[in-house]
């Protein structure tokens, strides 16, 4: 595919949606369109997501950020009315190809949901659930250790270390959110998709999660949906702006926030819409 063809094809997105070096690309999304029955939630999205980078998705509520994110680990398969068209490649392999093992894919691409969804089990079992599934801990003590490090990294250990066998549902909303983050990093996926992971967190816990994202970025690829411009600018390397189901602008984060190319992006980040 030549550069000219690419540019024509991507006329709807300004900035730099595609990356140059193929090695650095974790996900490459082409012509992605998602429908919920009649409603089209995502229109013609073309986007590369860089390896070991943090990509922030921003945009007004209902613009399709979560829908897009859920395409990356095929969570939309569960919704009967949802139809995904286009291509999503993970490490150059099409994840929507028929022979793909969706279960293995989801173990590689972990997800933290917009609403905390702890299992009705103990805190310990919530974290240990994934590692047990995938046989990641050889011994009970290894599992204990894994649970502790996961909770520590999510900044929850100090609060729950004496309550590990209490039901997870008795935690506060923000604690539950951190628990879900800990649960996801416990299975050590290659990619972590985070849908507004800090929406219920106080500034201290938010700072803790942002520090975690900074740490994780060395080994993992992270895609984060956020409504906080400050957060996007603090943690992300690249930022993608969605509007009404379309990807309007993608660029390096400092570029987007210093000099947005699309007037819609500028309006949004300066607080004039959304």
């Amino acid at each position: 595919m030549t550069t000219v063809e690419r540019d024509n094809e991507l006329s709807s997105t300004v900035g730099k949606p595609l990356l140059d070096g193929a090695d650095d690309v974790k996900f490459s999304v082409r012509k992605l369109a998602v429908h919920y029955a009649e409603l089209q939630a995502v229109h013609d999205v073309n986007l590369d997501i860089g390896q070991r980078q943090v990509t922030a998705l921003i945009g007004p509520s209902g613009c399709g950020k979560s829908t897009f994110l859920r395409c990356l680990n095929r969570m939309n398969d569960i919704i009967a009315s949802c139809v995904v068209q286009g291509e999503v490649h993970l490490d150059q392999k099409d994840i929507y190809a028929p022979q793909v093992d969706v279960v293995a894919l989801r173990a590689r691409v972990g997800m933290v949901f917009q609403k905390p969804n702890p299992f009705p089990k103990s805190i310990y079992d919530n974290i240990a659930y994934g590692p047990r599934l995938h046989g990641q801990a050889d011994s009970p003590s290894a599992l204990d250790e894994l649970v502790e490090t996961s909770l520590r990294r999510a900044g929850l250990w100090a609060e729950v270390k004496d309550l590990l066998h209490r039901p997870a549902t008795s935690l506060s909303g923000g604690q539950q959110q951190r628990l879900c983050i800990a649960r996801t990093i416990a299975i050590q996926p290659e990619v972590i998709l985070m849908d507004e992971p800090c929406s219920a967190l106080d500034p201290i816990a938010t700072a803790r999660i942002e520090a975690l994202i900074g740490e994780l970025k060395c080994d993992y690829t992270i895609v984060i949906v956020t409504h906080s411009m400050q957060q996007a600018s603090r943690v992300s390397d690249r930022t993608a702006y969605f509007h009404l189901g379309r990807l309007l602008e993608v660029n390096a984060t400092d570029k987007i926030f210093m000099a947005p190319e699309h007037p819609g992006t500028e309006d949004y980040i300066t607080g004039r819409i959304g």
């Binding site: 989801r106 972990g110 949901f113 702890p118 599934l133 996801t184 299975i187």
Partner: peptide, 15 residues
């Protein structure tokens, strides 16, 4: 049982 619980389990790579 809420759908979010199912999604949570599936997203951790459960069959």
């Amino acid at each position: 049982v809420p759908a979010s619980l199912r999604e949570g389990a599936l997203a951790l790579g459960a069959t």
